[in-house]
């Protein structure tokens, strides 16, 4: 390089060496602290964060004697629509032969009212089914008493 060019290079890099790191730091410090922290697994409630499970289901009886099925969807499997069936997984075609008790939309907690007559001893599994794609999503999970 000729001397003039070297001088120009030196000046340019002296400027860059000062300005660019400053801008870099300014950009770094202005990263918003408030951010959408969505992640592939939406984690619910502090107490449940450590638990690794996609879903959890349990049955409760209220004071009035009505039965409710509680459902936590922790990791929401991507689906077009999602219906909740209570069924006996030993049956053939256990989705069709199960009881459709409601729908879920995304991760979160759900509660479904259930009729006592469907609480047969072996109907103790929850199956989530996509009626539009016509396929089961998640593995069946056992209802906790």
């Amino acid at each position: 390089m000729i001397t003039k060019l070297r001088k120009r290079h030196r000046r340019v890099w002296l400027v860059i060496a000062v300005v660019l790191p400053l801008l870099f730091i300014a950009a770094y410090t202005s990263i918003p602290k408030y951010q959408l922290q969505e992640s592939p697994s939406n984690t619910i409630n502090e107490s449940l964060i450590t638990l690794k499970f996609p879903m959890k289901a349990w049955l409760t009886k209220s004071e009035t004697g009505a039965y409710h099925l509680g459902l936590y969807v922790n990791e929401y499997e991507s689906s077009v629509a999602a219906q909740v069936y209570l069924t006996n997984i030993e049956l053939n075609d256990y989705v069709k032969n199960g009881y459709l008790i409601g729908t879920v939309n995304g991760a979160g907690e759900y509660s479904f009212t259930v009729k006592p007559e469907i609480l047969e001893p072996h109907h103790n599994f929850i199956v989530i089914y996509d009626p539009i794609k016509q396929k089961q999503i998640y593995n069946p999970i056992r209802v906790e008493e």
Binding site: V12, I16, L23, A27, Y28, I31
Partner: peptide, 22 residues
């Protein structure tokens, strides 16, 4: 061709003010 240094600075800021903000 020395403008590449300007391009470099622009790209660093493109990254810092863009994807790095997320």
């Amino acid at each position: 061709h020395m403008l590449v240094y300007v391009a470099y600075a622009l790209i660093i800021m493109h990254v810092m003010l863009g994807v790095i903000q997320l």
